[in-house]
Design a binder for these strands. Structure first.
Lengths: 221, 221
DNA sequence: TCAAAAGTGTTCGATCTACACCCATGG
DNA sequence: CCATGGGTGTAGATCGAACACTTTTGA
């Protein structure tokens, strides 16, 4: 019989870096190694629901961006028995995150996407797939916002894109493009206590997004 | 316990239309309905391998383009028991296709992507996902060639793209773009017995593709 | 000689890129 | 009044859409 698990690549953004939330394994196999949070699939729960539950259990967050990456199913990916896994990735605002009781900082770690430790099973490969998928998705769906607080500056947003895509973007052109899309609302608020011109804070315009989407609109970069 | 199946969306191109290969179900549940070819996952076979086997069994083809779409895992997608499915899509050259012995034309049918019959389980949804994925993939990876014979005209290729993307493309610009990419080799052959200027036949340049890919090249439309 | 589809030249406007510059704030 | 990062104007290059035109074949 083939067993099925569901694993989550939870992305966050902090200190201008793209991060992944990893958990230290309590049990064999691979006890003590870092791994993706996840669980075996329960007969009475959908695969999406299983990913949601894992997220809730670990980060205490509901209603967050969650999308399937793909299934991984080599015969030998898991030692001792046949286990395939279905992987999801999530985008969360790291400010809203507080680990559930019972998860110490030693157990639950935000790692830089480009400085990952040794990982259990094929989780390295899964994270690479997640990152690749995110890189593509972020260019034609406005999902980068999910990594930021409700209110953010244009520079914040640009840094998110630079961290995900691992390229430098031109400030002028990035702003022009975002302006044209009309997906941002000026909140009227500004940065405080900064030793330079304070940035205007924006929020994402959900309604405009829905409206544009119906019209077959195409977000680009 | 959760069971796992692997299903294949097999795409072909004929009469300027994008087609999907469907099979009439022999057994309950949904006996007599059209469905995607597939099988339950065997413990000793990888999920990719399972998709390959299905393809071989039905079309007698090896070595064809095959990519995972995603897993479908609603609790109630399959009647009577819990079955999740992992779906793949394949691109084949319909000219090379001949159904394996035992599969009559009544049983195995190429259907227009926009004229699908009633389908078993959630297979309609799976085909829609496959088409959506194909639409995206085809724009930044040169995979459309897989639907054509070894040698093809530029008009053939344009029709493939138009059938997949369901848009009309401008002849002049399509050709200019393809020319710039240098992915086509002029075979020196031409169409025969056509009542108009015969088209030059090209083939896909595998080596150039690998070379360009290493250099971080980006196929676009 | 005609119809049909292959294949090419060229214009115009939109978009992208790059660089230079001004602005508001804390120290 | 200076350093710092926020925010804008604009010229030039590149790209894509559209249209008109020539070419080669079978009937």
């Amino acid at each position: 019989m083939v067993e099925t698990s569901v694993d989550c690549v939870i992305f966050g953004f902090q200190h201008e870096k793209l991060k992944v939330l990893l958990i230290k394994r309590n049990n064999e196999p691979s006890k003590g190694l870092m791994a993706l949070p996840g669980d075996f699939l329960d007969k009475s729960i959908s695969i999406y629901g299983s990913a949601e539950n894992t997220l809730k259990k670990i980060t205490d967050l509901d209603n967050i961006f969650l999308e399937q990456i793909q299934a991984f199913g080599s015969v030998d990916r898991y030692p001792g028995k046949r286990v395939i896994t279905i992987s999801y990735y999530a985008l969360i605002n790291i400010e809203n995150y507080s680990p559930r009781a019972g998860y110490t900082a030693e157990k639950l770690v935000w790692c830089d996407i480009d400085k990952l430790p040794e990982l259990a099973f094929d989780h390295q490969k899964i994270i690479e797939s997640a990152h690749k998928k995110l890189k593509r998705r972020v260019r034609y769906e406005p999902i980068g916002f999910n990594l930021l607080p409700k209110e953010f500056s244009l520079t914040n947003l640009q840094q998110v894109y630079e961290a995900i895509l691992q390229v430098e973007l031109n400030k002028r052109n990035f702003r022009t493009k975002l302006n044209q899309m009309k997906l941002l609302i000026n909140t009227g608020n500004k940065q405080k206590n900064v030793a330079h011109k304070p940035a205007i804070l924006y929020k994402f315009d959900e309604n405009m997004y829905k409206h544009l989407k119906e019209g077959g609109f195409f977000f680009k970069l």
